[in-house]
């Protein structure tokens, strides 16, 4: 136990900024993912094929290929077109990746809201758009939260793949220090603890939000 503490303190200087980097990549990945997810979820449920089909294709491609490959494709692919550093490339790759999953989460949540809700709104004279915004989204969002939380945790862990394009996040730093000191196992183990702490805190936060929303309406 003492040994662990020694290691943690010893690596603290490097691991804290590295964890911050991990959180940064995760946050941007999630934010871009949520934006893309909302956008593509709406396209996906559209009755117009011209909107639904591209959304379906995006989700199909992203979910059917490895994130690591997407990351490399975006990084090396875009470097040729626009000048892009590894960090923004990681944001974009993680965002595009999470967008597909979040789109499916939102789509499922929107479609799970009872049709009677739309009908009640429409019969009051509301436009479809207004019904979506006022009636469907708030309920869908609440239902999406558990799956979203889960996706956020996956995103946090997935951010470690950014190490493959030299983003100085937690896993990359752990590997570098471990190799330099010939103590790879220890270094990786400490990194594991850092990841656990971050995912746990994330779980607690999303749990609190879910709880707050649940008690605010005690929805059946």
């Amino acid at each position: 136990m003492n040994e662990w503490i020694t290691y943690i303190t010893k690596y603290f200087r490097v691991f804290v900024p590295a964890s911050v980097m991990t959180l940064k990549v995760t946050t941007f990945g999630i934010l871009i993912g949520i934006l893309l997810g909302m956008f593509f979820a709406l396209m996906r449920i559209s009755k117009y094929r011209a909107l639904a089909v591209p959304a379906k294709a995006y989700i199909w491609v992203i979910r059917g290929t490895p994130l690591l490959l997407q990351l490399l494709l975006i990084y090396y692919g875009l470097v040729g077109v626009v000048k892009m550093d590894n960090l923004p490339a990681a944001f974009v790759a993680l965002g595009v990746h999470n967008g597909a999953y979040i789109a499916e989460i939102f789509r499922g949540a929107i479609q799970s809201v009872d049709r009677g809700q739309t009908e009640a709104g429409v019969s009051l004279g509301m436009t479809r758009r207004k019904v979506m915004r006022r009636i469907i989204f708030p309920q869908a969002f609440k239902r999406a939260l558990p799956s979203l939380s889960n996706q956020f945790i996956i995103a946090l862990k997935d951010s470690s793949l950014a190490s493959s394009i030299a983003v100085p996040e937690l896993l990359l730093k752990a590997k570098q220090i471990g190799s330099a000191n010939f103590k790879l196992m220890e270094s990786l183990s400490v990194a594991a603890v850092f990841y656990l702490v971050m995912t746990s805190v994330l779980t607690i936060i999303t749990g609190l939000i879910e709880h707050a929303l649940k008690t605010s309406s005690r929805q059946a």
Partner: peptide, 28 residues
């Protein structure tokens, strides 16, 4: 001009009773 009442009520569960009632007034 045409109000509708449904078998399963279809109240908006995320709004209070008052907000259910005034939703059409304020939004429409």
């Amino acid at each position: 001009e045409v109000g509708m009442v449904f078998q399963h009520f279809n109240l908006f569960p995320h709004m209070t009773v008052m907000n259910n009632v005034i939703e059409g007034l304020t939004q429409v």
